[in-house]
Simulated assay, not measured.
Amino acid sequence: MHSISFNPVANQISTKQAAELIQVHESSIKRWCNDGELQFTLTEGRHRRLALENLIEFARGRGIEVPLAWFRGFEADVWFSTSAALTGDYSSVMSLIGSWIKSNRIGYVYRLVEYLNDQGVEWAAICDHVLAPIMTLGAEEWKSGCGTRVDEHYNAEIVNDILQFRRHSHRHLGGNVRPSSRIAVLGCPGSEFHELGLMMVRVILEELGWSVIYLGSNVPVIDLADAQRKYSAEMVCISISSAQTFAGYSRAAEVLASCYSDERPYVLAMGGPEANQGTDELSYTDTFKELLMFSDIQTFASWIGQKESQGAHRVIG
């Protein structure tokens, strides 16, 4: 059984939605309805409504390629979950993904992430509201006794695979990547081994054309400073998970500040769940060209997007 149920009216779509879904003109939908080829019902206001499942089968019969057709048996679930996500409600998406993970339909999860983005859900929002919850789903189940550490690691591998596929497919297709001399150094400092959030930042930067020096997890902060000097990087970005306290940011900023040189200025961006306390709690805020703290990927994406639109698309002016 599906994880999401709909009332008898909820899986009905308008002729306009039907046209968008199978990528034809709305007049074609109306003509097929008038000719009796496509079944429909009428609302009290005399508006046509079509059952989504019937529309998908109709399109298949005519050889019309429909992206939703890949989710055979779950077309309605995906359609209405995606519609909700476009309004900012991701609860149905996560219920669907949770059921697919439990039933080992992992291919559906990968394809849904791609489909959400194709339908207009921004990648940064997918990171915050889909990929991050997939990671916490395993951790929460383990803490409640309903899952195991294996489940948590399994979910993390799913997110890792999605991120790697995004990177490689975007490079292969060209995407929005622009040649650039802008360099960013990324790493998780100290004893920090949770790097999926940092990988999300990597994807965003690479798609904007940045060259990323990715040092990975458990990196001594001094190594981040050395890499910044070596490559004259315009940005150093570190990620610290909720396993560490706010003091982790303070220690990292202190070490980087002690090595900072005005001859090689850079922006320091620090992200993680505890980063929402803000820069006011940190010393050395005036040392760097700029200091950004962000607790979600959308905040970082918005910030870097604004910087990209300013002065020759450079963070350091």
Score class of each variant (00 low, 15 high):
45 G>L: 06
45 G>A: 11
45 G>E: 11
46 R>D: 10
46 R>S: 12
47 H>T: 11
47 H>Q: 14
47 H>C: 06
48 R>Q: 02
48 R>F: 02
48 R>V: 01
49 R>K: 15
49 R>L: 09
49 R>A: 02
50 L>I: 15
50 L>D: 00
50 L>T: 04
51 A>M: 10
51 A>L: 13
52 L>S: 05
52 L>D: 11
52 L>V: 11
53 E>A: 14
55 L>S: 03
55 L>E: 07
56 I>M: 09
56 I>F: 00
56 I>L: 06
56 I>S: 01
57 E>C: 04
58 F>Y: 07
59 A>Y: 01
59 A>K: 03
59 A>E: 00
60 R>F: 07
60 R>K: 15
60 R>P: 03
60 R>E: 10
61 G>E: 07
61 G>M: 06
61 G>V: 04
61 G>F: 10
62 R>F: 10
63 G>H: 06
63 G>W: 04
65 E>Y: 11
65 E>K: 14
65 E>T: 13
65 E>Q: 14
66 V>T: 15
66 V>G: 03
66 V>Q: 05
66 V>L: 05
67 P>E: 00
67 P>Q: 06
68 L>C: 02
68 L>Q: 03
68 L>V: 08
68 L>I: 06
69 A>F: 01
69 A>E: 13
69 A>M: 07
71 F>Y: 07
72 R>D: 15
72 R>T: 15
72 R>L: 09
73 G>D: 07
73 G>P: 05
75 E>T: 09
76 A>I: 15
76 A>M: 12
76 A>W: 05
77 D>H: 11
77 D>F: 04
77 D>I: 08
77 D>N: 14
78 V>H: 00
78 V>I: 14
78 V>Q: 00
79 W>V: 08
79 W>C: 09
79 W>G: 03
79 W>D: 08
80 F>D: 06
81 S>R: 07
81 S>M: 08
82 T>D: 04
83 S>Q: 13
84 A>W: 06
85 A>S: 10
85 A>E: 03
85 A>W: 03
85 A>T: 04
85 A>R: 02
86 L>D: 02
87 T>K: 15
87 T>F: 03
87 T>G: 06
87 T>L: 12
89 D>K: 12
89 D>P: 08
89 D>N: 14
89 D>S: 11
89 D>T: 09
